[in-house]
C-alpha cells in the first residue's frame, strides 16, 4: 500500500513535469489500452507494449478508469502509467470489488513494473518481448482468509510477446499477444494469494485483434487462472472493441465471461474503460 502511494505521488509529480513535453512518438493505437491490474495491455491481459505514446526519446503519462459490471459483482479500477523512453513502464492501480449482495467492498492496490527487452511490435522481425512484475496488496484480508487464502499480499511475474502484422488478415492489420504469468493470486488477488498446499504456477494468457482502420480495433482475450482454493475459479475471456480517436483519449468496451467467482456461478457482463494521455 505504501509503495503504491509513493509511486502515485512520483507519477503525479512527473506527470506534471512532463506534460509539456509528453511523448507522442508512437503510431496511433499501437500502445494498446490499460488492463485491470494497471499495466499496458488489453482489458485482462498485460501486453508486451508499454502504455503511453513515448518513443525511445520520450516520456509519457497515461491514466485510466474501468468498470466491469457482472451479474453479481462490480469491479472498478483506476490507475496510471509512466512510460520512460519506451523502455520502462511504471504503473499503479486501485481496484474496488463490489459485492452488492453482502453490501461489501474488497479493495486492492497494485504497483507494477514492465521492461521492454526486445523489439517493436510494428517494425522488428521478431515480436516485441517484455517482462513485468505486479505487486498486489489487499487492504482487508477478511474474505480472503475466510476462503482459505494463505496471504493478503502477492507478486505476479510475467513475460509477454506481441506483434502487429500489417495487412495480414485480408488486408487488415492483425495483432497478437501471448503472456506467461507466474502467480498465486486468487481472482487477481481480490480473494488473496495461494491456499493450503498450493503454490505459484504458470498461467498462459493471450490476445488477438484486428484493426478495421487506424482508429478502431476489435479483438478477444483469454486468461488462464489458477484454481487454488476449495471454491472454484475459472479462466477469463473477453471480446472487445476499442476506439482511438486521437493520442489523448481512448474508449474500450467489452463483453466479459469470467466464469464462477467466489461461489457465484457463470459471471458475465459488460466492461467499459476510458483512458487519457498527456
Amino acid at each position: 500500500m505504501k509503495i503504491t502511494n509513493t509511486i502515485c505521488i512520483i507519477l503525479g509529480i512527473l506527470g506534471y513535469c512532463v506534460s509539456a513535453m509528453a511523448g507522442q512518438g508512437k503510431i496511433l493505437a499501437t500502445p494498446g489500452v490499460s488492463q485491470a491490474e494497471g499495466a499496458g495491455g488489453g482489458g485482462i491481459v498485460p501486453w508486451a507494449q508499454l502504455a503511453g505514446y513515448a518513443s525511445r526519446d520520450e516520456i509519457a503519462v497515461n491514466g485510466f478508469c474501468s468498470r466491469a459490471g457482472l451479474d453479481d459483482y462490480q469491479l472498478d479500477v483506476c490507475g496510471a502509467q509512466l512510460n520512460l523512453y519506451d523502455r520502462v513502464e511504471l504503473s499503479v492501480a486501485k481496484q474496488t470489488f463490489d459485492v452488492p449482495a453482502l453490501n461489501m467492498q474488497i479493495k486492492q492496490d497494485i504497483a507494477g513494473v514492465k521492461v521492454r527487452l526486445y523489439g517493436d511490435i510494428l517494425y522488428s522481425a521478431l515480436p516485441q518481448i517484455s517482462v513485468g512484475w505486479q505487486h498486489k496488496s489487499l487492504k482487508d484480508g477478511t474474505i480472503a482468509n475466510l476462503l482459505g487464502a494463505k496471504d493478503t499480499r502477492g507478486d505476479d511475474f510475467y513475460v509477454a510477446a506481441s506483434k502487429l502484422h500489417l495487412g495480414a488478415l485480408a488486408g487488415y492489420n492483425f495483432f497478437w499477444n501471448v503472456t506467461a504469468r507466474y502467480t498465486d493470486a486468487n481472482q487477481l488477488g481480490l480473494l488473496g494469494f495461494g491456499a493450503e498446499g498450493q503454490h505459484r504456477s504458470i498461467q498462459l494468457e493471450g490476445a488477438a485483434a484486428v484493426f478495421l482502420n487506424p482508429n478502431w480495433a476489435v479483438g478477444t482475450e483469454y486468461r488462464q487462472k489458477p484454481d487454488n482454493m476449495a471454491i472454484k475459479e475459472d479462466d477469463w475471456q473477453d471480446v472487445f472493441i476499442a476506439w482511438f480517436p486521437n493520442k489523448h483519449f481512448t474508449v474500450t468496451a467489452a463483453w466479459l465471461n469470467l466464469g464462477d467467482i467466489a461461489g457465484a456461478e457463470k459471471q458475465t457482463g459488460w466492461y467499459l474503460s476510458i483512458s487519457g494521455a498527456l
Partner: peptide, 17 residues
C-alpha cells in the same frame, strides 16, 4: 482504402532501419 494503405505501409516499414 485501408487494406491498400496497409499493403503499402508493409512494403515501406523495412526501410526504417
Amino acid at each position: 482504402e485501408t487494406p491498400v494503405q496497409n499493403a503499402l505501409l508493409a512494403r515501406l516499414a523495412p526501410l526504417r532501419s
